[in-house]
Design a protein around this nucleic acid. Structure first.
Lengths: 115, 115
DNA sequence: TTGACATACCACGACAGCCGTGGTACGATA
DNA sequence: TATCGTACCACGGCTGTCGTGGTATGTCAA
């Protein structure tokens, strides 16, 4: 266990899952499965968001007005998907979280000794 | 509210309070009140750890074997204090958290747009 | 002498977000 | 026939933070 390679800290990620999702939705509307794969690829497979985390983030953010959803049936597959798009509120929230991140990162780093 | 200056993210800090405390104890044994003030000054007043967070971190870390405690009565003031020192387990844990931090930070930053 | 403030600590319980378990449903491929 | 990938979600447990409130000592000013 102590010689396991360091993994992503779910405590740090906590609260930044929303930010990651919004980063992706800022570029284009998308749906759960695709967002999950994008987070995985952007992070070079280093972070794989849990399904339940993802979907609970959607409902929380929709409730908060950061995203909006609608249903669509994919042409090829005939699968029903729930698409999400970012709102203006969501863009503002994303920017706030970026500023918060930079501040927090700079504080935490004062307590970290590089390896 | 949206024009409030960005504050530290307690979600990021979550789990890194322990790391901050260990960073201080790595230099010298100390006690709650002093550690709290050190965290405050090292962070340039940007982060003030809550008392309850601090003391629950102590009991968690002692249970996990990262720190050891003993009681002492201060010479001048006659106040009873609980001192803490870091253990070898604690030093190892601190190093792990540092590695974890760097990995996590690098992943999160891919989803952050600098202001 | 009264009250405020700094020091020094802690119990209790609420809360939020992550996550494990398990479920539904469809199509493709072997 | 079975497995895998796609696509989604309900439920409840867990953990760390934090608000509220309490104990106790010493100092300093009004």
């Amino acid at each position: 266990m102590s010689d396991m390679p360091a993994a992503i800290s779910s405590d740090v990620i906590r609260g930044y899952n929303d930010t990651m999702i919004l980063y992706i939705l800022k570029q284009a509307p998308s749906y759960g499965y695709e967002i999950s794969k994008k987070i995985r690829s952007i992070s070079d497979e280093k972070y794989v968001i849990k399904e339940t985390t993802l979907y609970s983030a959607f409902s929380r953010m929709e409730k908060n007005g950061y995203i909006e959803s609608w249903e669509e049936t994919a042409e090829g597959s005939g699968k029903k998907r729930t698409y999400y798009r970012i709102s203006e509120e969501g863009r503002r929230y994303y920017k706030e979280k970026c500023a918060e991140w930079e501040l927090t990162r700079d504080v935490v780093e004062r307590f970290i000794e590089a390896v």
